Amino acid sequence: MRNDTRLLFNAYLARQAELNGVTNATAKFSVAPTVEQKLEDRIRESADFLKLINVVPVDQQSGEKLGLGISQPAAGRTDTSQNDRQPRNLVALDSRDYTAIQTNFDTAIKYSQLDAWAKFPDFQVRVRNQTTQQIARDRLMIGWNGQTAAANTDLLANPLLQDVNIGWLKHIRTDAPARVMDGVKIGNAAGADYKTFDAAVFDAVNELLDQWHAEASDLVVIVGRQLLNDKYLGLLNSADAPTEKVALQTLMLSRTIGGKQAISVPYFPPRSILITSPDNLSIYWQNGTRRRMIQDNPKRDRIEDFQSVNEAYVVEDLGKAALIDGIELPSTEQDGWA
């Protein structure tokens, strides 16, 4: 890197060391609690959908899920001459555990990129934002596509981070298969299960959700990208948004589906529909587990930022989630469904 860039980079290292109370940011260190929380806040602010869900710290690596949100009604009556009144626990009744596992977010920035940023007064912010924005993208990919937590991940085989952690949809498929419709045919063709998306969503809401959630005002319909065209759902309100903005933006569709607001979230499976409330989905990150090291690697003409934190993806109340998976649409080319 250029000499002027080197001065800026050294100042960045000194600032990171100062913030975290260490003498050297190029040796592995534990991120200070206040810095850890600020970093989590910045990651959450980087993606629209992360602002809508729960991204919460937990103290234990493993434990019972927090049960955020309301899972059942509270109203009732008891003949106290015969029985005691029984208060209800309003959090989710199923006692499912979470395990926060280490996730590495290791990134690199080429010297040439740092040299290009050196002329800007917000050099340190640009270096920081590259990492936080990618962590936000990665969390969306894992939440929607995560299938396993492999000891050694393979990005080439799993380009949507399917092997990094178990995501929300996998939890629904595994822990609540009765709340999943799979291989549903939707369209105006022979053999259709439903003629319209409205009918499919209406049926899923009434048949798959717990009854007290079916009329909840905070339910949304999250729709896959292959369903987003004018033949099926109408045009996006934000179709002209810049590519970089769309990469982290939750798009509000121009119509409701089954009476619920429809939205499109980055990296959601292309042929699926999820009905839930955003705050029924959580990412737990374990306090005090974020580790970091920044190093200069002249052998690769880049700086490298090694970060890790323990995290888990949790569906708080499975009774408030319905998944329509593997949707098939009429195909003129195949003269059937695809």
Rank of each mutant, 00 (worst) to 15 (best):
P87V: 01
Q226K: 14
I222N: 05
T99P: 05
W212P: 01
V91Y: 07
R255M: 12
G63S: 08
Q307I: 10
E64L: 13
I53M: 15
E40R: 06
R88P: 00
F306G: 01
T243E: 15
S46L: 03
A150T: 07
S62E: 12
W285N: 00
Q286H: 09
D230M: 08
I43C: 03
R225V: 15
T23S: 15
R42Y: 08
T131Q: 11
L329Y: 05
R292S: 09
H213W: 03
L208I: 01
Q211N: 04
G234C: 07
V205P: 01
I275A: 07
Y313W: 13
P242H: 13
Y98T: 14
S238A: 13
G76R: 02
T5I: 08
A11P: 00
E215L: 00
T256S: 14
D97E: 12
L219S: 03
W144N: 05
N54P: 10
A32V: 04
R302I: 12
L66V: 04
N237L: 14
A214S: 11
S95R: 14
A200N: 04
A262Y: 06
V35I: 10
M252S: 11
V246R: 15
N89Q: 05
K170M: 14
A312G: 11
P278L: 09
A241R: 14
A27M: 08
I142P: 01
L155T: 11
N24M: 03
A214P: 01
L19N: 04
Q211F: 02
P269H: 05
L236S: 12
V35A: 07
S217H: 03
V91F: 09
R88N: 02
K245F: 05
P266E: 06
D175C: 09
D279W: 06
M141Y: 06
G234M: 11
I186G: 03
N10V: 09
F268P: 00
L156C: 02
S282T: 11
W168K: 04
N287P: 02
S254E: 15
V315I: 14
P33R: 15
Q133N: 14
W285K: 00
S238G: 12
E207Y: 02
N158C: 05
Y284T: 10
N237K: 11
E311S: 03
F105W: 05
P87Q: 02
L50H: 06
A116I: 14
S30T: 11
G224I: 07
G224Q: 01
W212S: 06
M141S: 09
V205F: 01
Y98M: 13
Q124V: 09
I186E: 08
A149K: 12
Q61S: 10
D210S: 04
N229P: 14
F49L: 09
N145R: 09
S217Y: 01
V265D: 03
Q124W: 13
P266S: 11
G288I: 11
A199K: 11
R128S: 10
P266L: 13
N310H: 12
A136W: 08
V223T: 13
N54G: 07
V314K: 00
A14E: 14
I303P: 00
Y194T: 03
D122V: 06
L236T: 13
D97Q: 12
Y111K: 01
K110C: 02
E64W: 08
A17D: 12
I283W: 02
N24A: 10
D230A: 08
G187I: 01
A157Q: 10
